[in-house]
Design a binder for these strands. Structure first.
Lengths: 336, 336
DNA sequence: CTGAAAGCGCTTACAG
DNA sequence: CTGAAAGCGCTTACAG
């Protein structure tokens, strides 16, 4: 029914081996052979069957993307972060031949145990993962011997993993410095609880602490009820005002936007009498008014770099187990 | 090297046919056979090779997702809309066995011509697509004879396609009605140019027109420079104020948020002296302050419904070529 | 540079 | 309910 390598071989007057070689750029063949094969393939409308190819090569040209296991649903809706990563991933993939595609799975806790089987069943060539995961799970994935690139993961080192992070500590430092330079002295830090389970958030927190220590000022860490960051930010406003805090570094933009919303509602002149700095430079940070001062990390680039790193490892043009830390910068806007 | 159906058959003391039957719930076999096979498979750590299965069945258990061709990059970053759809798609897919996965491709104009080959090469079982596409392209996809579910597409009918839309016309009507009820009389409509190429935006526009006609008021349609909707919204503010418009229905939330930002910057008291209604009920619509009155469409549900529709067609539990129109509703908040 | 042969891991009639 | 056989479309040594 469908056109196979045999049909193309017959049409081009060569063997199927030659057709295969031409399509895979293997071995050597004359230029005329190459043209004849490609022409025959075009005439017949031949499209290589990737399942057959995969069966024999044991490679799928499929990259798996894993989003964090602590999110049970609506991963993409909750925060724009993952979407930007995803855009970066696709952007990098566009440069590849159309053979290279991505499979992407949102492993809820329940599905996490199936990821290993999924990798095996689909012969996934490599994995991209964002965030923190259960160490036992990572151990299991590492044992598959396929390359893995982890974004924003601060956990223990695994031989088959490569790591890409932002300079979160420095980001926290820059945020606090900005508030200090603007003359604020009672500077709080806002985080979504629990802070201690997120190494990434702790890094940002450490940067804040370093700046406060240098300035000889008291650290004031506020953890809001775990939940969607926007809502948490809204809820934290009263406690901050009560405690006479006059500036806040929020560990993520959505938290800052929630806080901003509630402060405005209460008539606080944010930017003048109250300083606010976020983290991430999400588009919402410059779409609200007043616009949010924040720490920029290039999320899109993170997705691009993670993907090209993985692709290069798969092509054996790069080593596994590297670590890359991307710079961050302060974006000064209206709120501080 | 890897564990195959033969190994399981040997371990369980049955034929490979039986193993295959058990794994696919085919034919009949005794309960003890079933248990023996499953036990043997578990002991050996057997995982079916999907490529081999695909080769013989000519099905991949892969669903393709197509995002609109008019976006050349950053599809997901530009608007949260697609992310929410994606979340809905995954949510629906979670209920399936782990065999069912999704491949998803962002076809830029250049890559659009390769989608057909991609479907063939990967033996994609069915396709989900969002938005408008080139008719020739749709014709080509329709010819593949695989089921396709289209979200937000108002084009010509194809036999293998099913359609899911929101009641956009009614949404436009409800938006304009709200502004009329709030006492506004000089009510404009804001769209990103070009409006005439988007049947969906035209529907929303028609609803607005109907309401204005009923009220005996003049229609004022403003098309802002094509570009990111937020920026377009910002740019449109001066022209609106100059033309004495005192209320606006924006065809999409991001456009309304941009306009809101610029109006606040200019000191306009939005919600009192100026009415504003958006469309989509994106999360940003309630995260800005004042919060945006808007038309809710259940984007998440759209993704869920599209996916279950496709899955049901694939399982032959539903017909192709149906049309579903989902209701919309007004969400009254601070801006109107 | 080319061709004949084997085999990847699975499912599907078919005969028992 | 079970087993032996054929075959899906491809790649990979191997011999020429």
């Amino acid at each position: 029914m469908s056109i196979t390598v045999v049909d193309v071989a017959r049409e081009a007057g060569v063997s199927r081996t030659t057709v295969s070689n031409v399509f895979n750029g293997k071995a050597k063949y004359s230029e005329e052979t190459r043209v004849a094969v490609l022409e025959a393939a075009r005439r017949l409308g031949y499209k290589p069957n990737l399942a057959a190819k995969s069966l024999i090569t044991n490679r799928s040209n499929l990259i798996g993307l894993l989003l964090p296991s602590y999110v049970d649903r609506n991963t993409l809706t909750t925060s724009p972060f993952y979407n930007i990563i995803l855009d970066g991933v696709y952007s990098a993939l566009q440069n590849e031949t159309y053979y290279d595609l991505i499979i992407y799975s949102v492993p809820t806790r329940a599905r996490l145990s199936q990821v290993g089987d999924w990798i095996d069943s689909r012969s996934v060539d490599g994995v991209l993962a964002v965030g923190e995961f259960n160490p036992r799970f990572l151990q299991e994935i590492n044992a598959k011997e396929i390359p893995v690139v982890l974004i924003d993961n601060y956990q223990k080192n695994f031989a088959n993993f490569s790591y890409i992070n932002s300079d979160d500590e420095n980001g926290g430092y820059l945020a606090a410095r900005r508030l200090l330079e603007r003359g604020f002295r009672s500077i709080g830090l806002c985080a979504v609880s629990p802070l201690h389970t997120s190494p990434l958030m702790q890094k940002r927190c450490e940067g804040y602490r370093r700046a406060m220590r240098e300035a000889g000022l008291e650290e004031k860490v506020f953890e809001g009820e775990g939940g969607p960051p926007f809502e948490t930010g809204c809820q934290m406003a009263p406690a901050l005002l009560e405690r006479q805090v006059d500036a806040v570094f929020c560990l993520e933009d959505m938290l800052a936007v929630g806080l901003l919303n509630e402060l405005l509602r209460r008539g606080v002149r944010v930017g003048q009498e109250f300083g606010l700095v976020g983290f991430d430079n999400l588009s919402i940070s410059w779409q609200v008014y007043p616009e949010l001062t924040t720490i920029n990390q290039n999320i899109f680039d993170k997705g691009v770099i993670a993907t090209t790193t993985l692709l290069n490892i798969l092509k054996e043009k790069a080593m596994r187990n590297t670590r890359l830390i991307l710079p961050v910068e302060l974006i000064a806007r209206g709120t501080a």
